[in-house]
Design a protein around this nucleic acid. Structure first.
Length: 577
DNA sequence: GCCGTTTTCGGCCCGACTGTTTTCAGTCG
């Protein structure tokens, strides 16, 4: 079972226990454990076997006992027993917006309703409005909520970070120029640079006199298709791409506290507030307050952290994965930044499936201040992308070297290739690779192999010693296909043994390797290469997305190969040979 | 059920919005 599957079991356990009337704290504990396991860098199954699971925050004896039972018997007796007492489908009701535990219990116990279909029929028949705390307005809203829920179920819930970033930046630009707006910034999981984003959280500081007009302007924006709610300080809408966006207006004196609060993550905030409570302080989105109610911090985020005895930390770290302790102990990592990147070692030209020439790619790279780039067009096996035969590769290499000479040191061009790793782990164009300056080895076909076979395939390619870097190792496409199943430890161990790097492909739908694998690479000393995989000059900018993932993996510039100079990379390469 | 620079027992983040109330419970983030 992978971590996501284990998290689903624990979440279901929480759901059925909650409906069975179990204490909220026990329910919450299972939900916390589910989130902790889902966000784990390693396989929980292996940690369970090695005893390492006990060290994971939020996972205690109770969860470990149940997971052992699940491993040994294939089920959890407590879950089976609780499920048997509940009507099937009832936990589904709580997925509807506006329906929580109490309402689900209420309609079940008082009306015998256990499915969304029955709930909708009852609402349409007007038979819910006589229930306590129900009325005709709630009934109407519920019908709309069910319709919206069905519509939304047919489209992906979370969107790629790049799409969310573009939308959020556009909204922030429009909000920022409204009368009365002092500061405007997006927060939430986008600011933490999660690979996918569920909704947008946008924050504005302004005096209360302007808040109403700002919220009205937000709701009237052309990309808004649905209004979910609006009050004095907050509005929620649905945008035309299906994403929800929330706007909060706070006083300037609270902007830092609100930014901290709405950036999350939830687990990070809970951990931070727990520390504050121990110091006798109260943290809210309005500031940090002492027992007398005096404000100690609020206008800026760093001050909020300082007030509870912590150092400010980059949003990408805020997942309660050790950053609070690191902050207390003064050992927060220095994370890689965009400006640290000195070159890009994976891109395509018209020679295969790119849209730009060698010279155009070089000029674009000079423009972003890179010192070197590797031109890595596809190899023969990838016919659909006009992969190069040995003859075409040799001619292409000659042209790259000529272009390099003509550039006169303004930037250095490395002659490379993206060679297919074939089904048996051998390499396409294998006889040509020794002559090249840089070789990316990538899997492009037969991605659905069993885990063991795919692992062998990659390990064999890595152990050939002929590739410098494994390109987009899992082959996933966000929202389109899952990555290949892989034994990461075996693959990264092979990289460590042979001095091979792994790519963090920054193409917005790939972001491959994942942050978890990138963190595992760092722990093994395997260098990560942050590449764009650009197919046009514009796409060189994709690296900004990969930077976010690298930072979430706690990577500093010392862990990223292409923060080094070309000479250092050459030395790294020859040390292996 | 989990956790510990006040604790191995006794707590467990905090506020906005909504629809229902006539002071607040439920839901959400």
């Amino acid at each position: 079972m992978d971590n996501a599957a284990i998290a689903r079991v624990l979440t279901e356990l929480a759901d059925v226990l909650e409906l069975s009337g179990e204490t909220v704290f026990k329910v919450r504990a299972f939900r916390t454990a589910a989130r902790a396991i889902e966000g784990l860098g390693e396989r929980a199954e292996e940690l369970l076997a090695s005893g390492g699971l006990a060290k994971v925050k939020g996972v205690g004896d109770g969860v470990i006992r149940r997971l052992k039972e699940l491993r040994e018997t294939g089920k959890i007796a407590e879950l089976e027993a609780a499920r048997a007492k509940l009507p099937p489908g009832i936990t589904e009701l709580m997925n509807l917006p506006g329906i929580g535990l109490k309402t689900a219990q209420q309609v079940w116990k008082e009306r015998g309703i256990t499915t969304i279909e029955e709930l909708e029929a009852a609402a349409r028949a007007g038979s819910l409005r006589t229930l306590p705390r129900f009325g005709d307005k709630r009934e109407e809203k519920l019908i709309l909520a069910i319709e919206a829920f069905r519509k939304r179920a047919s489209q992906p819930k979370r969107r790629p970070m790049a799409e969310a970033l573009e939308l959020a930046e556009a909204l922030v630009a429009k909000l920022g120029v409204l009368p009365g707006v002092v500061s405007c910034q997006y927060a939430g999981s986008l600011r933490r640079r999660m690979e996918t984003v569920g909704d947008l959280d946008i924050l504005v500081s302004a005096d209360a006199a302007h808040a109403g007009a700002i919220l009205d302007a937000f709701c009237a924006m052309p990309e808004v298709t649905e209004h979910l709610g609006k009050g004095d300080t907050k509005a929620s809408v649905v945008l035309d791409n299906g994403m929800q966006a929330d706007l909060r207006v706070v006083p300037e004196a609270s902007f830092g506290a609100a930014l901290q609060y709405f950036t999350g993550s939830k687990d990070h905030n809970v951990a931070m507030r727990t520390i504050a409570v121990k110091h006798g302080l109260k943290v809210s989105e309005y500031g940090v307050f002492d027992a007398s109610g005096k404000s100690l911090a609020g206008p800026d985020e760093a001050g909020v952290y300082r007030a509870v005895g912590l150092a400010w930390m980059p949003p990408e770290l805020r997942e309660n994965r050790g950053e609070i302790e690191a902050s207390q102990d003064g050992r927060l990592p220095a994370l890689v930044e965009q400006g640290d990147i000195r070159g890009d070692l994976h891109m395509h030209t018209r020679e295969s499936d790119g849209k730009s020439t060698i010279e155009e790619m070089a000029q674009a790279a000079i423009h972003v201040n890179y010192k070197y780039i590797a031109i890595t067009d596809h190899s023969e096996n990838l016919a659909i992308a006009r992969g190069m035969t040995p003859e075409r590769l040799r001619a292409h290499v000659r042209r790259i070297r000529e272009a390099d000479d003509a550039l006169d040191g303004k930037i250095r061009l490395l002659a490379g290739v993206e060679a297919d790793i074939l089904a048996d782990g051998s390499l396409d164009l294998e006889g040509e690779l020794a002559e090249l300056d840089w070789v990316v080895g990538s899997v492009h076909g037969q991605l659905a192999m069993p885990r063991e076979q795919m692992t062998k395939r990659l390990v064999r390619a890595i152990e050939s010693g002929k590739i410098d870097c494994v390109g987009h190792p899992t082959g996933r496409m966000l929202g389109h296909r899952d990555g290949s199943e892989l034994d990461w430890e075996a693959v990264l161990d092979a990289c460590a043994r042979t001095g091979t790097a792994v790519e963090l492909n920054s193409s917005p739908l790939r972001l491959d390797v994942t942050e978890h694998a990138a963190r595992a690479a760092r722990e093994r000393g395997v260098p990560v290469v942050l590449n764009s995989d650009a197919h046009s000059t514009r796409e060189l900018a994709f690296v900004k997305y990969g930077i976010g993932i690298a930072r979430r993996a706690w990577l500093g510039k010392e862990h990223i190969l292409n923060t080094r100079s070309r000479e250092e990379i050459r030395a790294w390469r020859s040390a292996r040979a």
